[in-house]
């Protein structure tokens, strides 16, 4: 046996027969090792704590006005100041943060999942599946989504925010799906996908194990952008009275209300804006980490294993 080992250095002793780490463990390990992911996760966690613990920290409620303090700058009593009605901006911001965190994360998650599945299925199966799914995508693209949401949302009034999330996600996945479809079509021709087919791996499994990890870089970048976009499109709808309605607030409605007053009463705008930026930034950090962890060739996330003697010169460029 030993003589044939032309390329490996030494035949390993039998001691190392512990089960080798699978992809899931490797990706998780790499993600946790990256500092950006930890920082991002901690920020998101803190934001959630603030959103749901914040209301208990202040005696003020997000609707009740304080007629003694109207448009007051931040002070010991009103930490983030008050607005034109005398409502406490801190209480409003944390209340808005609750909504926006959930809406932003869920919309991005749902739309990315739908987009990747529809896109990958259309690209992988081809033929009639492709034609039907592409038709659906095109149909959804030409529908004036705003109008449809306007028509449907009164009917969904009782269903609460989850219906709103579903609605936003439903009009947010098509372009991503088209990109995933074309990427899948080229991946499908690659030999490793063919190899999996000849091994008898089932189509859906090929999509999950081979296709999606290889489009993951795009999906993750797209999802992190979608988080910010979802918060903003929720704002637009809220502005027209759909989605989050007064007296309830979201970060979007706060921003919309505060934008024109920002130069004079900055506390009405900048606290909400800063939290949104922080949120999107944290999501980006996590996304970057995830992307690096999934991409074995990315420099930043390569495990510090250089000490392991042998060359990989011909492969690593």
């Amino acid at each position: 046996m030993t003589t044939v080992i032309a390329e490996s250095s030494i035949p390993a002793p039998a001691v190392e027969d512990a089960a080798p780490a699978g992809r899931l463990r490797l990706v998780l390990g790499k993600m946790l090792a990256a500092r950006g992911v930890l920082v991002g996760a901690v920020i998101v966690l803190l934001l959630f704590l603030l959103a749901f613990g914040g209301p208990f920290l202040t005696p003020w409620n997000y609707v009740t006005p304080d007629y003694l303090a109207i448009r007051q700058p931040p002070s010991g009593q009103h930490w983030f100041g008050t607005n034109g009605l005398g409502q406490d901006v801190f209480a409003q911001t944390v209340r808005g943060l609750q909504k926006s965190l959930i809406i932003g994360l869920l919309v991005a998650l749902f739309s990315t999942v739908v987009a990747s599945l529809v896109g990958a299925c259309a690209g992988y199966f081809g033929g009639w599946t492709d034609r039907a799914l592409t038709f659906l995508v095109d149909l959804m693209l030409v529908f004036p989504s705003f109008l449809i949401i306007t028509i449907i949302s009164p009917k969904l009034r009782g269903a609460g925010w989850i219906a709103f999330v579903a609605l936003l996600a439903a009009f947010n996945w098509m372009i991503t799906a088209r990109v995933v479809r074309s990427m899948t079509r080229s991946l499908k021709e690659r030999e490793f996908v063919r190899a999996a087919e000849f091994m008898g791996v089932r189509p859906l499994r090929i999509i999950v194990r081979h296709i999606l990890p290889n489009v993951a870089s795009f999906l993750i970048t797209d999802a992190t952008i979608a988080v910010g976009a979802a918060v903003m499109s929720e704002t637009a709808l809220s502005f027209f009275g759909f989605g989050v309605r007064a007296p309830d607030v979201s970060l979007g409605t706060l921003l919309a209300a505060g934008t024109d007053q920002a130069p004079v009463f900055p506390w009405l705008f900048y606290f909400a804006a800063a939290l949104l930026v922080l949120f999107v930034l944290a999501i980006n950090l996590i996304g970057d980490g995830l992307r690096d962890a999934l991409d074995p060739t990315s420099e930043g996330a390569r495990p510090p294993r250089k000490s392991r003697t042998r060359r990989t010169s011909r492969s690593s460029k």
Partner: peptide
């Protein structure tokens, strides 16, 4: 290079036909 999924560790690659 083309026939091995670049995003999979080789343990998973080798396990794939067994899994299938």
């Amino acid at each position: 290079m083309a026939s091995l999924d670049p995003r999979m560790p080789i343990s998973d690659i080798i396990a794939e036909p067994l899994l299938a």
